[in-house]
Design a protein around this nucleic acid. Structure first.
Lengths: 236, 236
DNA sequence: ATGCCTACTATTGTATACAATCTAAGCAGC
DNA sequence: GCTGCTTAGATTGTATACAATAGTAGGCAT
């Protein structure tokens, strides 16, 4: 577990709290760190060659984002969203994202549509690729599409809310997703961009809503998950 | 400045990082701490009789909420939202709150309507009261109404987003509000509850949108604010 | 007198040390 | 042999100590 492989920069010379936070977040979102994994302050600190002080700062920030749970006197763990939390995360996405894409559709420029098309191409490239690394990159790219749309609104606060929702969605999918592959149909992403290009605001909005429904439909949120509660308790 | 009066519990025996965060947040939201005020780690620490460690944790959390800006090697300051930020905050509220009240209107129960009515009564009581303390309480109560509606959805994530938006709105109103009094028309709140009680979902949604527009209309967001930039520079 | 340079002070950034709490293993007793 | 207690280890919580940066004041030269 302590051998969790982070992206480069772990052995770099200069490391701040921000870098640790980002590295951990990326590892969680790309599912290199499984939900429930304990993040010992000492272990993380020695990986980055920093003291616990900076690690604690990073973990607290991640806790605020909902990616990490800190239990008093017990330590920090990669978040393990309950069914209720999962439902709330997607309920919030259903609430926010249609409005977001509506706003984006109004402000969108030709250059931004081109950027979205590039993201789609990248997604497709990864889908046709084999290997765990490609899978991780695909997961991230799939989320990045939603974030790119939020970025078009030019609203930093909204963007941050979406950052959090997308990151936590990744955890939910990791836990409750059934068809591991294609967490986000890239064809649906394509349709959305098409609607944006045609300036079809209502269409884009409707497609986004349907898209979120599809993602959620791939989840198995029955409370009677295979020994779910028990496993949580005795999980490392 | 160091004599900023916090609510009781400053001299209490047991204090954690959470308490400091809450006390500071309340002080900021109720405008006992002006935007731009420096929050020195030593000063805050001695006020609460804790070391800088806990103060830093609290300040970092507040920074994540957008209530405090931490500048590297310079310290933490009560946030001083720019015009652009103010616009984004209210744009986000316009985006989210109508959907929130729609969701709330569907789940609302009789008991919750009664709770809202109590909040309205409390608001009115404070409005008719004189003195700075009442004014502060009124500001808080006005925000609490919006938060109570978010709470009805039962969605903790949504609630947290709203927490942040309402808190930051208070800062914006403090900076750019024109008519100091009645930052939120309590009569409009009343109308919203009436609509909720009649199960008039669309009506409640429309009223909320209009209400937010009214709040924003009371703001003076012209970039050419009276020496704004200069005052920022020489502000304590 | 003004402008620049240098040294000092104060504050933040980071690491380490100590205290408190939890976890787990070993031992005694039933 | 199993249950419950006691003790030892490990991990987190908090405070303090040290390092680095920035702001400030004073002096010197022009």
């Amino acid at each position: 577990m302590t051998s969790a492989n982070f992206t480069a920069a772990e052995n770099a010379i200069d490391i701040g709290a921000q870098q640790i936070r980002d590295a951990l977040r990326e590892a969680i979102v790309e599912r290199r760190l499984a939900p429930g994994t304990k993040l010992s302050e000492n272990d993380v600190g020695s990986l980055f060659n920093v003291s616990r002080t900076l690690v604690r700062a990073a973990l607290q920030a991640l806790a605020y984002e909902g990616l990490v749970n800190v239990e008093k006197n017990r330590g920090a763990f990669v978040a393990h969203p309950s069914v209720a939390e999962a439902q709330q995360i997607f309920a919030t996405r259903r609430l926010i994202e249609p409005s977001v894409i509506r706003d984006a559709a109004r402000h969108i420029q030709k250059a931004e549509i081109k950027d979205l098309r590039e993201l789609l191409a990248q997604e497709e490239r990864l889908t046709n690729q084999r290997g765990a690394t490609a899978r991780r990159a695909e997961i991230k790219a799939s989320g990045d599409f939603h974030l790119a749309i939020a970025a078009i609104t030019g609203n930093a606060i909204l963007k941050r809310f979406m950052d959090e929702l997308i990151a936590r969605s990744s955890l939910v999918i990791a836990l409750y997703g059934q068809s591991v592959i294609s967490s986000c149909g890239h064809n649906e992403h394509q349709e959305i961009v098409d609607a944006l290009e045609k300036n079809d605001v209502d269409g884009a909005c409707a497609l986004m809503l349907k898209h979120i429904d599809h993602i959620e439909a791939d989840l198995d949120l029955r409370t009677t998950k295979k020994g779910g509660d028990l496993r949580d308790a005795l999980q490392l």
